[in-house]
Design a protein around this nucleic acid. Sequence first.
DNA 1: ATTATATTAGAATGAGTATTCTATTATGTC
DNA 2: GACATAATAGAATACTCATTCTAATATAAT
Lengths: 199, 199
Amino acid sequence: MGRNARFTDDQFLDAALAVLSEQGPQGVTMSAIGRQMGAPIGSLYHRFPSRDHLMARLWLSIVESFQEGFLKALATGDGLSAALHTPRWVREHLNEGKVLLLFRREELMAGQWPKEMKEQATALGQYLADGVSAFVRGHFGRVTAETMRTARFALIDVPYGAVRPHLERDEAPPPIVDRLIEKTYRCIMGGSDEDMERA
Amino acid sequence: MGRNARFTDDQFLDAALAVLSEQGPQGVTMSAIGRQMGAPIGSLYHRFPSRDHLMARLWLSIVESFQEGFLKALATGDGLSAALHTPRWVREHLNEGKVLLLFRREELMAGQWPKEMKEQATALGQYLADGVSAFVRGHFGRVTAETMRTARFALIDVPYGAVRPHLERDEAPPPIVDRLIEKTYRCIMGGSDEDMERA
DNA sequence: ATTATATTAGAATGAGTATTCTATTATGTC
DNA sequence: GACATAATAGAATACTCATTCTAATATAAT
């Protein structure tokens, strides 16, 4: 039809991720992305209607990448493996991990979700909620506010808290992090029903 | 001398905190702070050399407020009380909690620490490190990378991870959060030396 | 080769906001 | 009461981007 593209969508997203990881959210200007990959601003706007669209796609792709492995582990009923997925995934995807665990979505996008993407964002949140919910039913027998909160703690909050300080220093989480997450998981999720009643 | 001041320093900081809590870091413009308290921009710059100075003072005062109670608890050797200080303090200081647990320092200040304040910031970090270090020596007998990391996990990372999702929804952490933090603390810090070796 | 069009180019525009600058207004001191 | 000055006022300035706009280029199809 017309001229061949010099850049792919993923190249733009990769460049944005690189700048994000090096400079933080403030540094991710359209011209910085262009500079990073040697592309002019016009090309950026040829592919993405706005900076927010670009950042939203980047964010969604990262969340999706993380959740895929997490939910897969959870679906097998192996909660410990799901809890350990956070440090495992972060080691494989250090830059993505920094984005997901260090930055808030609001930092990346100036406005709300672009409406084309709001649906996908909601869906991702729903998948996560459903996955945890199904796991909780299997593990505790019933889904209550208490059992849900407990599972979220062991599966998400603790791994998040344990990994985060290392990402702040731009380093991969060391092995002890996995041991601490595991010990906590066993203690919180492996307890007897009596423990649950008291908790 | 001259005219009496209409506003106190703390009024400016309180106004900034209010805007920060309602609108997030992006919303804290100098004019928004002024609007919040009915003060003109000129008055802001009469008291604070720059927006970064104002935000730095706010941040330091919040960190100081949090650390004071945390280190006091830790100094008595009661690690559990220190671990539970996070949800306790957050309930008493919901807005400050949101700032401390939801936002990064870099979000609040455009540049680096103003040099007048860099020293104070470093000192605060040192107090925390020293306090944890002394506690670890008392609790585990020796200060190693492993014992330090373990203590930080139980004292800081876990409470942080557990409280954060509630602040994201602008709600106080419910009682179950304390129970989860406590159970984890006992499991991680109360274990036998053998457990420590294995961990 | 010509044409249509996808894509690259990057200068020009516009909006938002920190900061500066020039008054204006009170209040303590003489 | 007159003066010196601390403080308030807010309009003007300067700067940083996101976004727009107009051209220039390359390639597929004919």
